[in-house]
């Protein structure tokens, strides 16, 4: 695409001499285009190399490893699809996958819903200084490294952490517990950390989408007597369909492929109640030294993510037509 733009922009002006015949002129044009194209390709090369080296190669290696039984050091044995077969028949893998789907509620639905709400509120006060402060504060979690966020939250959620202190302050002593150490609340507590991190991203994306909505639409709606709620559902939400789809895509991937937050805050515990596929891959590869099995699970996880996310993309494109 780039080379066509460059080519036409420069070629259009052309110092095609009056004296030259049509044929030679065409040939010269073609040569120039080729040359420009060459430059464009050359410009892509570094990025393409990096992409091939750091994305395609690991991807290919993962796929290759998944057909072997290998401990990471000694010679490997070709086992064909046996690793994948083991995946499908291992009942202990359902738990982590189910947990990952539960995390979608926290990592995806809550940030998108809250993001819509906050973005709408911030748009309403767009000119005030409060809007800038609110935007910055809500986006800040995106800037903090996930590991730091995980450690901070595991303190806040501990027995004597801020969360329980506040609950005790308002007389809810009975509710207090070690949130990350309780079977009923650990997954939810991990989800809250994820929601906190991803809310800022969703809010910013949605806010950016709102700025391109034609203000005339709101004016027209107001003349027709629509209140803020009606405005939101009739104008804002439909106009943001694409942004919402992007938010959902990014956050669903974050939920299904989650690793860092879980690893820092619970390591899958208590009793596997927060175990996710990402963590399972890590245990397989680095503790059980089953590199082949871990790779197979990684490939399967990728397929699962695509299976969830691609229909979303397709739906979005369909509704655009």
């Amino acid at each position: 695409m780039t080379q066509i733009d460059v080519g036409s922009a420069a070629g259009g002006v052309g110092q095609a001499g009056v004296e030259a015949g049509t044929q030679s002129r065409r040939r010269a044009l073609r040569a120039r285009r080729l040359r420009r194209g060459g430059v464009a390709y050359a410009l892509i090369v570094p990025a393409a190399l990096a992409y091939a080296l750091f994305v395609l190669r690991p991807l290919g290696l993962t796929l290759q490893f998944s057909f072997y039984e290998w401990d990471g050091i000694t010679p490997s044995t070709w086992v064909g699809l046996a690793n994948y077969g083991a995946l499908l028949t291992d009942p202990t893998l359902f738990g982590p996958i189910l947990n990952a789907f539960e995390l979608i509620v926290f990592f995806s639905f809550i940030p998108v819903a809250l993001g819509l709400l906050t973005a709408n509120l911030i748009r309403g006060i767009a000119t005030s200084r409060l809007a800038v402060v609110a935007r910055t504060v809500l986006f800040l979690p995106q800037v903090i490294p996930l590991v730091a966020a995980g450690i901070m939250w595991s303190w806040q959620l501990s027995t004597n952490g801020v969360v329980n202190q506040i609950l005790r302050l308002v007389g809810l002593d009975a509710v207090t517990r070690a949130w990350l150490g309780d079977f009923d609340t650990a997954l939810g507590a991990v989800g809250v950390i994820g929601a906190w991190v991803l809310l800022g991203l969703c809010m910013l994306l949605l806010l950016a989408g709102m700025t391109k909505i034609d203000p005339a639409l709101y004016e027209a709606a107001r003349i027709d007597g629509a209140g803020p709620v009606r405005e939101f559902f009739a104008i804002t939400l439909p106009s943001l369909r694409q942004e919402v789809a992007v938010c959902l895509t990014v956050t669903i991937i974050a939920a299904l492929a989650s690793f860092d937050i879980v690893y820092i805050s619970t390591q899958g515990g208590p009793g596997n109640s927060t175990l996710v596929p990402g963590l399972e891959i890590y245990y397989l590869a680095f503790f059980e030294r089953e590199v082949g099995m871990a790779s197979a699970l990684a490939v399967a996880l990728m397929v699962l993510v695509l299976a969830v996310v691609l229909p979303l993309q397709w739906l979005n494109r369909e509704s655009d037509r």
Binding site: L59, G60, W78
Partner: peptide, 13 residues
């Protein structure tokens, strides 16, 4: 294609 690009010798050999 990606797999073949990654080189075909078995890991750990």
């Amino acid at each position: 294609a990606v797999a073949s690009a990654a080189g075909c010798s078995s890991p750990g050999s």
